[in-house]
């Protein structure tokens, strides 16, 4: 009996080593911790509670888009159109939203529907034209961007104050946006980890042939991943519109590359089938933490912080890729 216990615990231990070789979010969380410690020592302002709470709020839009990006990338795809989708949603929301509760709720529903619809467009083009996702979403991002510009060339529109107040309400570390992100994170993490659909996303990215051979319509799964991404873009778009009380065709422009960065830094494989949302959480946190720090330093020393920001994010991307390089894809 004793021997047996040893045996099973050994197997478990062995399995855990094996699995860390495949995918582990440990690396990225440790890296995040290391960066956190360094900046908390180096930059005094950083550790102020207000600033820390701020970072959690700042990461929300990126975090939400990156959830969608991760789901798409786990399925072996990529979504370059997220930025343009977000911009378009901010413009639509700020163009038609009125002061009445009915209008606010109606416009929110419409935007969520439109976001899902934009995602579905990506998915259906992929299915019927069989063009690589990189190209499809690049094209559709021009499409969405173009529509956005044709509605509003400049920043503007109207967002009722109450919408902003609700969406950005916060008390210390507790804020509506961060809670919203957490809820979305938990829902989609559950979806990926515990449900059939989640399992099929991993199988789609890992070996689509196998999925087809057990009788699953892999196209449907793929379309659904893009719909999720579009839906989450809509939420992000609404949040940005509320926070900035306006809409603009360039509000979303950074998010395509940043969401891919957060996802990849978080350990999701570009080839699909390998990765997790917990890694992406850390990746998004890393990006927004560095943003915050560099803004602080930049302000202090009067530097062109935008430039340094990009350099640092580039370095982080390369460093984290270096840690993942030995992983089997």
């Amino acid at each position: 009996m004793k021997h047996n216990i040893f045996n099973t615990s050994f197997t478990k231990f062995y399995a855990s080593i094996k699995s860390t070789k495949r995918h582990s979010t440990k690396t990225i969380w440790l890296l995040l911790l290391a960066v956190f410690i360094i900046v908390s020592v180096a930059v005094q302002e950083f550790m102020r509670p207000a600033n820390l709470a701020n970072i959690l709020i700042q990461m929300v839009p990126l975090g939400i888009v990156a959830i969608g990006q991760t789901i798409v990338m786990l399925g072996g795809g990529i979504d370059l159109s997220v930025g343009a989708q977000i911009s378009l949603i901010t413009i639509i929301a700020s163009s038609i939203m009125g002061d009445s509760t009915l209008s606010i709720l109606g416009v929110m529903m419409l935007c969520l529907f439109l976001g899902s619809f934009f995602g579905a467009i990506n998915g259906f083009i992929l299915k019927y034209f069989s063009i690589p996702p990189l190209i499809v979403t690049l094209c559709s991002s021009f499409l969405f961007q173009g529509i956005a510009y044709s509605i509003h060339q400049t920043t503007g529109g109207y967002i009722p104050s109450v919408f902003k107040q609700i969406f950005t309400a916060s008390y210390g570390f507790i804020s509506v946006p961060f809670i919203l992100f957490l809820i979305l994170f938990l829902i989609f993490n559950y979806l990926l980890k515990e449900t059939r659909f989640g399992r099929y996303i991993y199988a789609l990215g890992g070996n689509e042939e196998v999925l087809i051979n057990v009788g699953i319509n892999s196209d449907t799964i793929r379309i659904k991943t893009y719909i999720i991404s579009g839906f989450l873009c809509a939420i992000t778009g609404l949040y940005i519109a509320a926070r900035l009380k306006s809409g603009s065709a360039h509000y979303g422009s950074d998010y395509a590359l940043l969401s891919i960065t957060a996802t990849v830094v978080g350990g999701t494989s570009m080839a699909g089938g390998l990765g997790s949302l917990s890694g992406t959480f850390a990746g998004a946190l890393m990006v927004s933490m560095l943003n915050n720090v560099l803004n602080n330093i930049g302000f202090k020393f009067n530097l062109q912080s935008a430039f340094y920001k990009d350099v640092i994010i580039g370095i982080i991307l390369v460093v984290s890729m270096f840690f993942y390089r030995k992983r089997e894809l």
Binding site: Y202, A203, G206, N207, V210, L274
Partner: peptide, 9 residues
């Protein structure tokens, strides 16, 4: 003959 499993599951 070919391997026919999803490697990361």
């Amino acid at each position: 003959q070919e391997y026919n499993l999803v490697p990361n599951l």
